[in-house]
C-alpha cells in the first residue's frame, strides 16, 4: 500500500508536472473578470503563448503590502482602483511604469494623447477603465430610494443595505447624505470633526448594514434578498440586468467615479512580461471590450467602438451627478481612517 502511495505520488507529479504559471494577473473577478478574460487575457495568451493565471482579490492594498513587506511576491500584474493607487505607489508596492512604451491607438494617435489624462496621471499605473461606485435597488421591492439621503433613511426605506467593508466611498456618502456639498467632502473628511460626523451618520444605519468583501457579492446580495439596496460597481449591476434580466435599477445620485489601472507588483521577477501584458491589454480594442460591463475605455480611440445603448450607462454620461474619488486623500488618510473604521465596526 505504501508502495502504491509512492507510485501514485510520483504519477501525480510526473503526469501533470507542476507547470510554472508564466504570469499571474490579479483582478476583481465576477462579471468584470469575465470581460477581462475575454477581451484582454485570452487574446494575450493566444497571441503570446504565455500562460496567464488569472486571480481574484477583493481590492485594497493589504495583500500587496503583505507580499512586499514579507518579500514573497505572488502576483505580477494587478488591477487596482485609483482610490488605492496613490497609496500603493507612494508606499513602494508597485513598480514605476515607463508610459512611453505604450503603443499608439488604433487610429494612430500617440498613447500620450490617446489616453485620457487621468489614465496616465500616476507613474505606477496605466488606465484600464472608467467606472463608478453607485447604489442599486431591487425593483421587486416596490418604489425604492432615489438619492443618497434616501439610502441613509431607514424609516422611509427599511431593509438591509449592502456596503463594501472599508471606509472608502462609505465615508464620502455619509457626509453627502448628512448635507455636505460633494465638492467639500474631502475637505470636511480631513478634519477630526468631519470624520466623527461621517461615523455618526453611518451609525444611524449600522444595524441595517450587511458588509461584503468583494464586488462580486453585491449583485448576489441584491438578488437573494440579503439586502434591498447595495453599493456596487456600476458594471456588476449592468451585467446582472443585461445578462440575467435581474430586476435591478442603478441610482446614479452621488456616485463616486474612479479609474482602474493595471499596475506591476514591486519586486516581481516577471517585470518585462508584465509590461508586455499591460501593453497588450490597454490597446484600443481590448479596452473597448469593457463596455460589456458598462465600463468606459481610457483611450479616446476606443470611444468610437462603443455601442450607443451602452453609452448612456457609462459613468461618463452621469459625471454631473457624481463625485470624483480622491486617491491623494485616501493615500494620506487610508491608514488612519481604516483603523478607525475597523474599531468602529467592532464597537
Amino acid at each position: 500500500m505504501k508502495k502504491h502511495l509512492t507510485l501514485l505520488a510520483t504519477a501525480a507529479l510526473t503526469a501533470s508536472p507542476l507547470m510554472a504559471q508564466d504570469l499571474t494577473v490579479t483582478s476583481f473577478g465576477g462579471a468584470y473578470g469575465a470581460a477581462q478574460m475575454e477581451h484582454m487575457i485570452q487574446p494575450y495568451m493566444d497571441a503570446s503563448g504565455v500562460n496567464v493565471l488569472f486571480e481574484d482579490y477583493g481590492g485594497g492594498i493589504a495583500e500587496m503590502k503583505a507580499q512586499v513587506e514579507a518579500g514573497n511576491i505572488l502576483w505580477d500584474v494587478v488591477d487596482i482602483e485609483v482610490i488605492d493607487l496613490e497609496r500603493a505607489c507612494a508606499e513602494g508596492y508597485l513598480e514605476v511604469i515607463d508610459q512611453s512604451m505604450l503603443p499608439a491607438g488604433d487610429d494612430g494617435v500617440a498613447a500620450a494623447d490617446d489616453f485620457i489624462p487621468d489614465a496616465l496621471a500616476n507613474e505606477c499605473g496605466v488606465g484600464n477603465i472608467v467606472w463608478s461606485v453607485v447604489f442599486a435597488v431591487n425593483t421587486d421591492n416596490g418604489p425604492g430610494p432615489q438619492n443618497i439621503a434616501d439610502f441613509f433613511d431607514v424609516d422611509a426605506f427599511p431593509g438591509n443595505r449592502g456596503l463594501r467593508k472599508r471606509p472608502q466611498v462609505n465615508m464620502e456618502w455619509a457626509l453627502i447624505a448628512d448635507g455636505v456639498e460633494p465638492e467639500d467632502v474631502y475637505g470636511v473628511l480631513s478634519t477630526e470633526e468631519g470624520q466623527a460626523r461621517a461615523f455618526a451618520k453611518l451609525d444611524t444605519i449600522k444595524e441595517d448594514i450587511v458588509w461584503y468583501d468583494s464586488w462580486s457579492q453585491a449583485p448576489v446580495l441584491l438578488n437573494d434578498g440579503g439586502a434591498t439596496m447595495v453599493q456596487s460597481a456600476n458594471g456588476r449591476i449592468f451585467a446582472a440586468i443585461q445578462d440575467d434580466g435581474a430586476p435591478f435599477e442603478i441610482v446614479w445620485d452621488s456616485h463616486v467615479y474612479d479609474l482602474d489601472v493595471w499596475a506591476i507588483m514591486k519586486g516581481t521577477e516577471n517585470v518585462d512580461l508584465a509590461m508586455e501584458f499591460i501593453q497588450s491589454a490597454t490597446m484600443t480594442v481590448p479596452l473597448s471590450g469593457m463596455q460589456d460591463v458598462a465600463y468606459g475605455p481610457t483611450r479616446r480611440s476606443a470611444q468610437a467602438l462603443l455601442s450607443d445603448d451602452v453609452k448612456a450607462n457609462l459613468p461618463t454620461a452621469h459625471l454631473d451627478e457624481g463625485l470624483k474619488a480622491d486617491g491623494i486623500f485616501w493615500a494620506d488618510y487610508g491608514e488612519s481612517l481604516g483603523e478607525k473604521f475597523n474599531e468602529w465596526l467592532l464597537q
Binding site: 507612494a90 491608514e335 488612519s336 483603523e339 478607525k340
Partner: peptide
Amino acid sequence: SGQLADEINRALPGMSS
C-alpha cells in the same frame, strides 16, 4: 514613509495622514 506612518499611527491615531 508609509511604514513610518503606519507605526506612529498605531500609537497616535491620525498621525498617518
